[in-house]
Amino acid sequence: MVRQPQSWAPSLFFPLLLAAVYSSQFSKAVNLPDFPYPDISFLDFILPACVIQGVLFGSTNSATDLAGDIENSFMDRLLSSPVSRPSILVARLASAFVYGLFQATILITIFYIFGADLAGGVPSALALMFITSLLSMAVGSFLIAVALRTGSQEVVNSLFPLIFVFIFISSAFFPVELMEGWYGAIAKWNPLTWVIDWTRGLTVEGFSWANFIKAVGIVTAIAVIGVTIAIGQLKKRLAAAS
């Protein structure tokens, strides 16, 4: 990591930059009449979303690396060695999780320094870190499936804007209650909105097992779907070899 700052620095820097921009641009949103949490700062409101956004930015890394391994035939090196086949996938998922954890820790620390207030204290912070890392792995698993399918870094990277879209059409930076029309309708059914709302419950209202379990539940569901697809793609790729 020390040798390749360009692979992780942007995914830390951009979320922070965006957080700075949003908090100065939209901070008046808290004063809107229907804003669900009238008593908190906008920074507190967007904290979980920013952490999630940051982690999602990084979630492509693991898949991009895998696609790179296929492109430059490092994968062949692995496959011609007695390495266990499932470990190829497990390692990438684990790396997505650990990477998410690393990012979440740094982002939460920075937000804390800039005055964000976590209602639930340490338990909420830990819960937020766990949920976002799991989410990084869940979203990562879809991208890993794409990487296994195409073996192309370009294709994996081209999906990056899609993550952006998912984040923007969600409750990340604006409460769904204040959205209108098709935009609001999509946002309401965007699974990311649920994750964010439940996670936000943890950080704004304080830690509650109910919110934690709901958030972990939905992320696990996403992960199960993604990992299943990824396993299928890995099997397909391995089937070409003996």
Partner: peptide, 25 residues
């Protein structure tokens, strides 16, 4: 046998493929 006992083959062979995948970092 490369098909029925691929694992045993992999343990016993060394492979240097074209365009060796070597991480420059």
């Amino acid at each position: 046998n490369v098909m029925s006992s691929a694992g045993a083959v992999r343990k016993r062979i060394g492979v240097a493929l074209q365009d060796a995948a070597i991480d420059p970092l």
